[in-house]
């Protein structure tokens, strides 16, 4: 399961960031920020190709020594980043897809709240509880 989950807005401002351990938030913020360039690149390459490469899930963005960073971009240009520990070798690609799917569903419910202003940071309780299901519980 994930150690960090982030939702990044259209103009690359963070709408939501949660880490399992709040003290590591700054470290992960750096990782997330660095991953955004890879995301953009992958989207541009993906658009030119046909078929499967145009899917919203971008796969592994890059591995670091301790973590693996995965990305996903919605058609509405919202970026999702999920970070998992590299030591979790049992985690399959399908599990990661599931996490993103869950996150995407939760995010689109947030947008559909008539009182949510798109681009604002997310403070929905519903969303919070969905993310909890994705993060590792310590």
């Amino acid at each position: 399961m994930a150690v960090a989950v982030a939702v990044i807005g259209k103009e690359n401002s963070p709408l939501y960031v949660r880490t399992v351990n709040p003290s590591s938030e700054l470290k992960f913020m750096y990782t997330i920020h660095a991953s955004l360039d890879v995301v953009e690149e992958k989207v541009i390459v993906g658009k030119k190709s046909s078929g499967e490469l145009r899917e919203l899930y971008l796969g592994l963005l890059y591995p670091t020594e301790d973590y693996k960073v995965y990305g996903y971009v919605t058609n509405t240009r919202i970026k999702f980043i999920i970070i998992v520990e590299s030591s979790y070798t049992t985690l399959r690609d399908n599990d990661i897809r599931q996490m993103f799917r869950k996150l995407h569903n939760a995010y689109s419910d947030v947008v559909c709240n008539p009182f949510y202003v798109p681009g604002d940071t997310i403070c929905s309780k519903q969303f919070e509880s969905s993310v909890k299901g994705i993060l590792i519980q310590e």
């Binding site: 658009k47 899917e55 919203l56 919605t74 058609n75 509405t76 947008v111 798109p118």
Partner: peptide, 14 residues
């Protein structure tokens, strides 16, 4: 704005 968020959820990238 909201409806398209839902309708493009399972849609390949444009």
């Amino acid at each position: 704005y909201r409806l398209v968020e839902r309708l493009t959820k399972d849609w390949p990238r444009f």
